[in-house]
Amino acid sequence: MAILVNIANGSSPSYNLYYADEYYCNGSTCEYQQSNVLVALTSSVSPSYTRYYPLEAGGFAYRLTSTASGGPGAILVPASYTTCTLACSV
């Protein structure tokens, strides 16, 4: 026996954090709520700052504005859309 160490790829995805503008999905329309909301996007996705991402839990869409370095963020769906209404329709 000995002290044993192993490092393996984790089973859960890692996320990158961003600040984003938040939009409330009200039926087929989008209602701007606030800026600088902390969101999380899986690190395997190359972020687009001109497209809209649905909230994984539904009900909101987000447009990324800048990267962030820490804190809990709302998890977004990796698929992005050209308009907020499209993001709200999924």
């Binding site: 026996m1 000995a2 044993l4 160490v5 490092i7 790829n9 984790g10 690190s43």
Partner: peptide, 13 residues
């Protein structure tokens, strides 16, 4: 960048 699981084990000896 990704998640890594780092496992360390050993007994008192």
């Amino acid at each position: 960048s990704r998640n890594l699981d780092i496992t360390i084990s050993g007994n008192s000896t």
